[in-house]
Design a protein around this nucleic acid. Structure first.
Length: 403
DNA sequence: CGGTTTTGACCTGCGC
DNA sequence: GCGCAGGTCAAAACCG
């Protein structure tokens, strides 16, 4: 049996399976998307090992920190579950009850989302977003779920919706592979003729092969969430298209694809073998449409997506909500919105820039870095737009940075 | 009946 | 070249 899914996983996934409906929770949300209380634990960029290796090569040999990060990423990818130190270092502790939000179970005291982002201690903050996409796109970490106090909703989404259907965003230097990877998928869905599409896909790959080009995956980003629910609500509808047992892990990995036509976004969901309470979700690609849920879920005319996520205003962190809430319904603030934004002006970074956070084409935030590398960039926060970052970063901080 | 999930088979990349 | 593991396909089953 290839699918070891009938084990512990079953229970956790039941919520989704029983309904047969779109993987989406309809329960009362313990918090609104973007709410600080959301359980996102940590982010990491699981982009292709190879790419990372290449990047690593380019990286200065003396960049120990960077190396460590990469290694961890590898490990992470190897077993999506492993929560390597790097992440454990992340201010993963959310001031929430029952450690629900405690990404790594550590107890480092209360830490706000911003702090989580590394703003608390820019010089040391180890964590967060890594956008290793060497040449191109940056992975906008979805600030997902968590609570980014304010996530850029699909609205900015206009971003989301307007994102050049993917490929372009992937970029400049991004290889054709990336583009091809997306187009085929999108078209297949659109035509409803997956069979042909699949063939097309393969054909494309073969062509790439002939050309001697290596197939490149779409930029991906992942995050961990402590939740009982495997599939976290993120504002989009997903269709499960596969499940595989994961080596060295009792938990299977599920593969989902965005149900929207022409949207080739995929995501993988799996539980950490080390900590079953942790769900690792990896997104690949970017949505080419607005969140279907926001579009229809509201009872009232929806404000611009961005606004939607912004409200209700995150209440003071009152972590006293019922335990029943825990993990039952985990809604991620439209992660899709964070998917690879249009080509950013990210000059080829020599080394992985740990803590790179981007919300859209014009926003980039290096939350941390290696001081030795002039990563003063670290604390370098360049906010050029009014997207996610602005919501995430207090104006005060921004001003300071700008000065 | 349309959409989603399940799941065995198949494809692909990678390490040895 | 071979084997393994990850990823995807697609037919059948399932569900509302």
């Amino acid at each position: 049996m290839e699918f070891g899914s009938r084990l512990p996983y079953e229970g956790a996934d039941r919520h989704v399976r029983q309904t047969g409906a779109p993987v989406r929770c309809h329960h009362q949300l313990p918090y609104a998307p973007g709410d600080l209380r959301s359980p996102v634990a940590s982010f990491f960029c699981p982009f292709p090992k190879r790419a990372r290796e290449e990047e690593k090569e380019r990286d200065a040999p003396d960049d120990g920190d960077a190396m460590m990060v990469e290694k961890r990423e590898d490990e992470m990818e190897a077993s999506a579950a492993a929560i390597p130190p790097p992440f454990s270092q992340i201010p993963s502790t959310f001031p929430l009850p029952g450690g629900f939000f405690d990404a790594d179970g550590g107890d480092k005291g209360s830490v706000g989302f911003l702090e989580l982002l590394g703003l608390r201690d820019l010089n040391q903050s180890p964590f967060l977003f890594e956008l290793p996409r060497p040449t191109s796109a940056v992975e906008p970490p979805p600030a997902t779920s968590d609570p980014p106090p304010r996530l850029p909703p699909p609205a900015e989404s206009s971003d989301t919706a307007n994102f050049p259907a993917t490929p372009s965003s992937i970029s400049s230097s991004s290889t054709e592979a990336a583009v091809n990877a997306i187009k085929p998928a999108a078209s297949s869905i659109t035509n409803g003729d997956e069979g042909e599409q699949a063939k097309t896909n393969r054909t494309t790959k073969e062509e790439e092969k002939k050309k001697g080009q290596k197939r490149q995956r779409e930029p991906r980003f992942a995050f961990k969430t402590r939740s009982e629910v495997d599939h976290l609500e993120d504002g989009y509808r997903w269709r499960k298209y596969g499940q595989k047992a994961v080596k060295n892990s009792p938990y299977p990995r599920s593969y989902y694809r965005c149900t929207s036509a022409a949207c080739g976004v995929k995501k993988r969901v799996e539980r950490s073998s080390e900590d079953p309470a942790v769900v690792v979700t990896t997104y690949e690609g970017q949505h080419t449409h607005p969140s279907p849920i926001l579009a229809r879920g509201a009872h009232q005319p929806l404000p611009p997506p961005s606004l939607v996520l912004l409200e209700p205003p995150p209440p003071p962190l009152d972590f006293g909500f019922p335990s029943s809430v825990r993990s039952k319904d985990v809604h991620l603030p439209l992660l899709g919105c964070y998917l690879p934004p249009p080509p950013l002006d990210f000059r080829p970074m020599t080394a992985p820039q740990p803590l790179m956070l981007t919300s859209d084409a014009t926003t980039a935030v290096a939350i941390s870095g290696d001081p030795r590398h002039g990563c003063n960039r670290t604390a370098e926060v360049s906010i050029r737009d009014h997207g996610l970052l602005q919501d995430l970063i207090p104006s005060k901080i921004r001003k300071e940075e700008e000065l």
